[in-house]
Design a binder for these strands. Structure first.
Lengths: 216, 216
DNA sequence: GGCTGCATGTAAGTCGTTACATGATTTA
DNA sequence: TAAATCATGTAACGACTTACATGCAGCC
């Protein structure tokens, strides 16, 4: 299970959990979230929406507040079936490549799941990264001969980045567990991940989020 | 120019600059270099090799040392045309997505090019990343309403990663320029990038390099 | 003698992008 | 009223993966 096409599906279902939306809007939001330059094309989004409609994962929203919606637009919302599928995709353990590709998306929609799933996703990713680090370091210790300067620097930088990512994941995992404990014991304003060093220049902001590069 | 298919081409040409190789070996090396989990399939490698052969970018090596090579293998080497193509691809300014995807490959083969190209690649990437950072920060300052906790953390982490990448690139650029100066003025052992903090457990190693995740 | 790994290749199918096509609506 | 942008969609094409097919060589 968990083929490639399901990435869009996961993203769409995740976004629709925030409220009904039409295709054009989904694309905009998705490009901001998963973006950093990459663009989801209409050519893949609209067919995906139709497919999800047929599969009864989403349905046309029964829009009460706007009787005369000016533009031609089709607003979708998640069905109960769609919600189940969302939870399945969020917790799905699939090919490593797929899990890599979807980590950011899953993470962005963590609020729509429960802690069990969150921990599974976080720990899964950490394990995978650690395994790769070990494999790389084994390779390093096995090989000899002179190293190309640039190749070595690239690889050094790569290892460092992954190690940093592992530490980040560990902090998140601790925070998750921390929530668990504190929720019962403390009345405080919930867990902070770490000091939010970079909470930006001006105003707080809405869901116009943007996604990081992660492990490229 | 600079379509997707050319990524393999670039990688193959780069590797063959280190010496003649056959397909199976290329695949192994490539998977280690570009890998961190991703695998280049035979289904794309072998056809690519044939295509490159037809385009006269590579040719079957005139193997002198092994008269009775035991196994069936086709060893390739770069032609002069191939070398030109390699230089073209190394310095090509294409779609941002393509440049992102190939940055690591280009970097890994920096030794086979000259400083002009190296600087162009490094500065090009730095510029692109900086532009994206600015765009993201503009978005942040434009939007209001409450942020989802996880989406915000993801985005914070993303920005931090990209900023780190930019700093890394800046160091590399300085080092490149440093080479330039020092080459003439100092007899020293060439430029160090930074302290090679992580130069590994045991032995130095050969080209069995591995590629970092970069910007995902 | 059989299993594992080396070595090359092809065919089918999937997935997604690019480009095209269409039309309404707001803004300058 | 012209341009930009909202909004949805389809058709053609390209690229890569998966699975299949084949055979030799070295090791136990």
């Amino acid at each position: 299970m968990a083929r490639r096409g399901e990435t869009i599906e996961l993203a769409v279902l995740g976004l629709l959990h925030e409220g009904p939306m039409h295709g054009y809007e989904l694309r905009k939001r998705l490009n901001l979230m998963l973006g950093w330059g990459r663009v989801l094309s209409y050519g893949s989004l609209y067919p995906a929406l139709k497919k999800m409609l047929r599969a009864n994962l989403i349905e046309e929203a029964t829009v009460s507040p706007a009787p005369v919606s000016k533009r031609q637009r089709i607003v979708y919302e998640v069905t109960p079936t769609g919600h189940d599928e969302f939870e399945r995709l969020m917790s799905e353990v699939g090919p490593a490549a797929w899990e890599d590709d979807t980590f950011d998306i899953r993470f962005a929609f963590f609020s729509s799941t429960d802690m069990e799933i969150r921990l599974r996703v976080l720990e899964g990713r950490r394990t995978r990264l650690q395994e790769r680090l070990e494999r790389v370091q084994q390779q390093l210790s096995m090989t000899q001969a002179e190293v190309d300067r640039y190749a070595a620097e690239l690889q050094r930088h790569g290892v460092e980045s992954v190690e940093r990512e592992v530490r980040w994941l560990s902090e998140l995992i601790d925070a998750e567990r921390g929530v668990h404990v504190r929720d019962a014991e403390q009345p405080g304003p919930g867990p902070q991940f770490q000091q939010t060093t970079f909470q930006q220049t001006t105003t707080p902001h809405t869901g116009e989020d943007v996604r990081p590069p992660t492990g490229r």
